[in-house]
Design a protein around this nucleic acid. Sequence first.
DNA 1: TATATTTGTGTAACTGATTACGTAATCTAT
DNA 2: ATAGATTACGTAATCAGTTACACAAATATA
Lengths: 317, 317
Amino acid sequence: MNFFEEVGKVAIGSRLRILTDKVTEDAAQIYKLYHIDMQPKWFPVFYALVREKEKTITKLARDIGHSHPSVSKIISEMLKKGYVKESKDKADGRRNVVSLSKKGVEISKEIKDQIIDVNAAIEEISAQAQHKLWEAIGEWEFLLEQKTLLRRVIEKKKERDSLKVEIVDYLPEYQEIFRSLNVEWISTYFTMEESDYKALDDPQGYILDKGGFILVALYEGEPLGVCALIKMNDEEYDFELAKMAVSPKAQGKNVGFLLANAIVEKARSLGASKIYLESNTILKPAINLYHKLGFKKVAGKPTPYARCNIQMELAVK
Amino acid sequence: MNFFEEVGKVAIGSRLRILTDKVTEDAAQIYKLYHIDMQPKWFPVFYALVREKEKTITKLARDIGHSHPSVSKIISEMLKKGYVKESKDKADGRRNVVSLSKKGVEISKEIKDQIIDVNAAIEEISAQAQHKLWEAIGEWEFLLEQKTLLRRVIEKKKERDSLKVEIVDYLPEYQEIFRSLNVEWISTYFTMEESDYKALDDPQGYILDKGGFILVALYEGEPLGVCALIKMNDEEYDFELAKMAVSPKAQGKNVGFLLANAIVEKARSLGASKIYLESNTILKPAINLYHKLGFKKVAGKPTPYARCNIQMELAVK
DNA sequence: TATATTTGTGTAACTGATTACGTAATCTAT
DNA sequence: ATAGATTACGTAATCAGTTACACAAATATA
């Protein structure tokens, strides 16, 4: 199967692990070569203490990129060997302040030659390589710090899913789905009201014929999202964004955003200057979405819906 | 302050580990995002089986860079999930041939989108980075394959140690060390013989006055190695290399090589054409050293030493 | 000032890998 | 033909890290 050949970079984690093992596997023998009685895993802690005399457990953990229990364990092992000493911080009784013992300081002198040689060996490898591993790692650390791999993957998924979503105009055949998707969320969080039934049972009469619009989102051809633009008789607002519903099946596929965006575009193309909407703060994803589209909170409009506790508007022009 | 920049490149192992963790940590959640019931650690095995339908445990282990018990365990877990099936190789009863089950093949189709997105995310990171991690890993794998880190470190150590070693001519003050270093190894492996005492107790009379030479290796000023060049009354050989001894304290510091090399140089500068030596095959490091210097095994010379079971020569000109 | 939250640390349990070792099948060199 | 070496692979023990949890000390807040 050729497919997997092309996308081989997913294996980068695996590859990194193998390289890490290869670089690390000789460590124990290198210490032996210099007659230094130290476990490789102690080194980062040891070195951190050479450079800064006193540190607490958590400070050490942060500096060397381990969890604190790991450092705690390493310190207790080094303590047994007599390489470090502990003392309680007088100002803060929780802190365990660790520093090198006299024996530890001695070792730190002995280990210098080893560090010089290992460094030289690694520099030699670097010099023989065209691509700089050290710098590459630095860049990756930075880039992953800024945005984790998970977030990047989520974005890529959204991009790809967006291509599968098609926004189309309402047709009579979509009445059933327009009704059911809306009934689903309304009755989950609230109860259906009189004005809901009017609009859902007869979108043609109550929305379209009055100058409104309905858009439907198709995901791979299947209608999974709907949204209406209702003509308002108001001096300030041209349309109300309402009856927006997306199937749970399409969650996380960016359908909501694409649908709402298309509705706003529709309003703009119709020459509208301001859109209005009503919602409820318990519908957090919806509120976030409106926010992302640029809707701002307003107050003061009378509403026929009991469930409404937030009103928003968007200047389209 | 960035710990790693200051520590120097010895920390590359630690840094690689942390990067590996960062790249790997999101894996479980990524699978969840795509509703795929698979453990991240299964992936390399799974992927290997998609690419090549049938594999044995050890082949899998080699391909993905794990130990075989690790693969064995992963396969037994995947077996429980029904993603793979096992069968004994008919031609070779030891072999456990593993392949994807029907369910496994289905999963491999579902996982395609995920792989595409993860790959795109990694490509995005690569594109944002100036230095190419993927290529750098490849080069490091190759370079470490050719020569392990341990071997490189050993070389660097030797280079550095060589600078600390100084080869000087014999002085009467070195008689004590010339004697003691030789007594030490001879009595460890064999027993002292009459001719040993003669030469060691009076090097001036038995070696130097007869036209021979002695060189002493100083390590940081301390005499830790000795070697003699004894004038021979022989039509074939000019000198015998003998009474070579290096303190255990100086082991692994390249002292032996530098000393023997200097002795050969000395013989050459004196116009010698062939050097002779006698030794015993249980002294493996010594034999290796002579070999490295170019000595070849010969036979047939009568020897006053009981301990001698190998004779070697080197053409100096 | 009392209470809730945060922080620092240690212990316990878990995890994903390893090495060590035993057994059985196969290969190889007399 | 067969003893000894090698290979395939499973189980057990170990290892270096993790997360989960408990508890005390310090800090923030009502």
